[in-house]
Every structure is written in C-alpha cells, then in structure tokens.
C-alpha cells in the first residue's frame, strides 16, 4: 500500500544506479515485451558467473531457464523493493534451488533452500589454491552465512540485494554477514610475533 506519507515514498524512489534495468523490467511488465531483451544482454554475464561458480556443468542451461522464468514473472518485480539486478539474482537463486532439488541433494540439507552446493564450491576453492585455513574457515560457516558472503564477494551484490536474493529481511542479512566476518577474523587472525611478516592467510596451519 502507498505509505501514508507521500514524502517518504518520494525518498525511497530517488537514487538508483541501476535505473535503466529497473525501468526496462517495469516497462516489460507493463506489456512492452521488447523492453526485456536489453536486460538479457546487460545481466547475462553476471548471472552466468553465478552458475559457473556453483554448478559449472549446467551453467548455460540454468542461465537460459533463469531468463525464461524471469520473463514469466516480470510483473512481480517492484522497483521500490530493490534493484533489477538483485531481483534477477533472486530468480537465479530459485532456479538453482529447483535444480538441486531435482538432482537430489548429496550433502545433508542445511536448512531451507540454501543454494550453496558446498562440495562444488569447495572444489573450486581447492583448484584456486586457496589457503587451507581459509577454506576450512569457510567450510565451517553456517551455510546461510556462507551463501550471503559469497553473494557479496563473488556476485558483488550489496548486502540488501543479497537479502532479496535469499528472501530474508535486509537487517537479518546484515547481522549474518557481520557474524560471518567475525568468525572468519577469529579463525584467521592469530597473534603474530613482532617483526615477522606473516601474511594473514599464508601459512596458518
């Protein structure tokens, strides 16, 4: 519902660096389907990256499915609630969740719809020769925290966008992210002997 205070509504609507995409999505929802294709060009490589990092063997198919579902659901996009980018990643998140459900989860299900196929992600980290201590610290994060962290690190989403993607309030996402950062700092920062130039993640065993 329209808020009682018109100024508040105005404030909320100002700003928005992703104005073009927001407008295109809104426009396509109102019947101008042609406004939808520029979105595909603008966001495909970021969405493809999301799948390539998490489900490399099916990334292209999942990307195509994401666009078809986004097109079908375009009328549910509300620019007042967040950017088109965040919304599209939300659709991608659901597509990946559906895929994981169909494929049958290999890992123990860690709660509702966490689309973090950790084994595959961990393989990627291993291949990237990530410091074992960092890998282990990430593995020990609660899946919800890890998923949010990867969304802001890899997908470069803002905390509020990441919140929309996993369907939780922005405040909840922020506190989870703060907690994740705290855990990682605790695990990865050790008191260092003065004068020694130990890199933070280099040789912690």
């Amino acid at each position: 519902m329209k808020p009682n205070d018109p100024e508040e509504l105005g404030n909320r609507r100002r700003g928005g660096e992703h104005g073009d995409s927001d407008a295109q999505l809104t426009q396509s929802a109102r019947g101008d389907s042609a406004a939808f294709t520029p979105l595909v060009k603008a966001h495909s490589s970021a969405l493809y990256g999301y799948f390539a990092r998490r489900m490399p063997t099916a990334a292209e198919d999942l990307l195509a499915e994401t666009w078809l579902q986004a097109f079908a659901a375009r009328r549910t996009f509300d620019p007042a609630r967040g950017s088109a980018r965040g919304w599209l990643f939300g659709v991608a998140h659901n597509v990946l969740a559906q895929y994981l459900r169909r494929a049958g989860r290999k890992e123990p299900a860690p709660g509702p719809d966490v689309t973090d196929p950790w084994q595959l992600v961990d393989q990627r980290l291993d291949a990237a020769a990530l410091a074992p201590a960092l890998r282990r610290a990430l593995a020990e994060l609660p899946p919800e925290e890890r998923e949010l962290l990867l969304l802001i690190s890899w997908e470069q989403l803002t905390p509020a966008e990441a919140a929309v993607v996993v369907g939780i309030p922005a405040g909840t996402a922020r506190s989870r992210l703060h907690r994740a950062r705290g855990r990682l700092r605790d695990r990865l920062t050790m008191p260092r002997p003065a004068g020694r130039n130990l890199t933070a993640t280099g040789d912690l065993a």
Binding site: G49, A52, L130, L149, S153
Partner: peptide
C-alpha cells in the same frame, strides 16, 4: 563486510571464464 584476512583471495577464487 569483506574486511577479513583472505577476502581478496576468496574474490580471486571466484573468477570464471
């Protein structure tokens, strides 16, 4: 929020074709 040891490494590990 990404201010923790190893954050850059993590970001690099996310690079894909």
């Amino acid at each position: 929020l990404l201010d923790f040891p190893g954050a850059d490494e993590l970001a690099t590990a996310g690079l894909v074709e």
